[in-house]
Write a protein that binds this DNA or RNA. Structure first.
Lengths: 347, 347
DNA sequence: TGTGTATATGTTATCGATAACATATAGAGT
DNA sequence: ACTCTATATGTTATCGATAACATATACACA
């Protein structure tokens, strides 16, 4: 009932006039700082509530030189739910602390990523979270603009905060689980990248190799496929069929992602084979795993926690800017979630 | 090499001084409007590029009274990929037209949704897209603030733009597909809500009923479960098992969502039954469908298109504000995607 | 020569909130 | 009575970009 005129939004000065005070006093009431008499405070609060006043954060941002806005640049919200998970975490922590989040899908393109960085700089975001960055130059562009930068999962530049995931340990845990069940002929479907062994892809593969080696099991070349697109279901499908022609005796499989594992399941389904009776399968990510048949044992990446950590790192850095802290680094643990796609080998 | 001082961001006036002109001239170059001599234009452009100047859109927004920002309030990015799909579409169209998107997860809570609306009003977003709105009061709050409002899929208030999906036709198409294959005993797993028959949930059920009726097939009560949580995999699992105890002769199933269908598949897997050999299954959404075993026949909701349409509706309204248009309404078609979970009944 | 117009550029008030500063009063302490 | 301080409130320059306005020159055409 109170207001009717949509087009005209109230300003602080309107509230001030209504309450018969100055904008400074309204500000003092709003931010609960400085001296305000009880009587005045009540009048101002009444004016605020009655008029439905909402402060203009654009003006506030300009004046305070703080937007309390975080930019989140991510590869693509579809189809891998990992990014949605991270975004949920980022937003939860940000909102808790009165920040808002702007989103940018980089669509796996460095050019598009760069546009995102520039848009965010122009919008005066205070920090950019890259999940995951694609080009070091883009990360550096953000740093040069004086923003706090957090690289998630797959850092491409050196000088920024980072939130990483312990993929190596996760992959090893998966292999160890299979070994404990009695498997010896364990395959691997995935990809390796040339370059740093620190890259996620390579870490998972190393975990697989080291896990086998530690148990004194040699990994045969024919058990391993390393040239697949790790987030394409078709490659999981093709991968399994290829692997079985190379060595039909493989009893278990570590697959780079849940998406690929879904492809593996489809291939098994076509072949009228069953997991875990005919072959045990472990995925990675815990995105599609709960929805597959059978529910897939997988190495869970704590997506939401990753997002929360990234936002908290960014905010911590922002709240302590004068201290000029070194870059934060954080590595989160993965967790093996045993469901129904793994069992002892059938002999 | 150019700049070194991170903490000090360049303003238009710095560029202006560097080029030996006024800010007005820099503005003219930047926005390519008004008269600028070729000579001056080049000097200014040089100054802009050399200094890496990025315009401050916070200041611009305040002055122009236009933020070119759209707020997107969605239920929850996880676990239903529908919301991520819509967001991708919203963002694509927005960015194309120089808007940016702020995201807010309402977490299925009306209170949280309201906080989102208020935060967005304070941030001076120009439009809010609700995917999907939860409380009419919140939608009205946004309208009262003079924002353009688009309700997606599940409108709760009357006076705003809407982007809907033709669930009824989709469900009917699914049933017709099953009938054509020769099925007569067709089950339904889902939920109905008291209230408007326009609600998504009820539309799908009505499509099922009408599809059967049009073919002269009576829907038996024991084929239908209507009290399940339509986005819980467990309810799909329970639903299938319950249905088979009620009538083991059911040969096909229309399931409210892909998530539920995933649960149905898990139940079948446990029972060592196969789709489509033992029972044909159709899902809804086309989110998890491509990843299940077998790939699930489903009624696709064009999520990305929905998001694009919503953003375009919002922007069209913003660009034509003086015309005071009536509210836009748009209904997008679903599409039956036939994969491998449907086949003629085995008799 | 004078007037008009296209071109080129500069000056300034403004968007809304706020921090710094200024002002004013009441009461405490000497 | 006088100074000091706590309390209470108002005034104003500022954040950076911009639109409206002002100014200035060059040239065309009468």
């Amino acid at each position: 009932m109170a207001e009717q005129n949509n087009s005209h939004r109230l300003r602080m000065i309107d509230v001030a006039r209504k309450a018969g005070v100055s904008t400074a006093t309204v500000g003092r009431v709003l931010h609960n700082r400085g001296y305000v008499s009880e009587d005045t405070r009540e009048r101002v609060e009444k004016a605020i509530h009655e008029s439905g006043f909402q402060i203009n954060l654009v003006a506030q941002s300009l004046r305070r030189q703080r937007t309390r806005t975080i930019g989140h640049i991510l590869t693509h919200l579809l189809p891998n739910p990992f990014f949605a998970g991270v975004e949920v975490g980022v937003e939860e922590v940000a909102v808790e602390q009165d920040y808002n989040v702007m989103l940018w899908n980089a669509l796996d393109s460095a050019g598009r990523e760069r546009e995102g960085v520039e848009a965010f700089i122009q919008r005066q975001v205070e920090a950019i979270i890259f999940t995951t960055p694609r080009s070091a130059a883009n990360v550096e562009l953000a740093l040069k603009a004086g923003l706090e930068v957090v690289q998630v999962e797959r850092p491409v530049a050196v000088d920024s905060h980072m939130v990483l995931v312990d993929n190596y340990v996760g992959a090893r845990a998966a292999v160890e689980h299979l070994l404990e069940l009695g498997h010896r002929r364990i395959g691997y479907l995935g990809k390796i990248l040339v370059g740093s062994p620190e890259l996620v892809d390579n870490q998972r593969y190393r975990g697989y190799l080291d896990g086998l080696a530690a148990a004194g099991v040699a990994a045969l070349d024919e058990w391993v496929l390393l040239d697949l697109d790790p987030y394409l279901i078709e490659d999981g499908y093709r991968g399994l069929r290829l692997l079985l022609t190379r060595d039909p005796q493989v009893t278990a499989l570590l697959v780079f992602s849940d998406i690929m594992a879904a492809g593996v399941f489809q291939a098994l389904y076509d072949l009228k084979l069953r997991a875990p009776e005919d072959v045990s399968v472990i995925g990675f990510d815990n995105t599609y795993a709960p929805y597959l048949s059978p529910p897939l044992t997988t190495v869970a990446i704590p997506m939401v926690e990753v997002g929360k950590a990234a936002a908290q790192v960014a905010i911590d850095a922002l709240e302590n800017r004068q201290r000029k802290l070194r870059y934060y680094g954080k590595k989160l643990a993965t967790q093996l979630i045993v469901r129904q796609s793994t069992a002892p080998p059938h002999i």
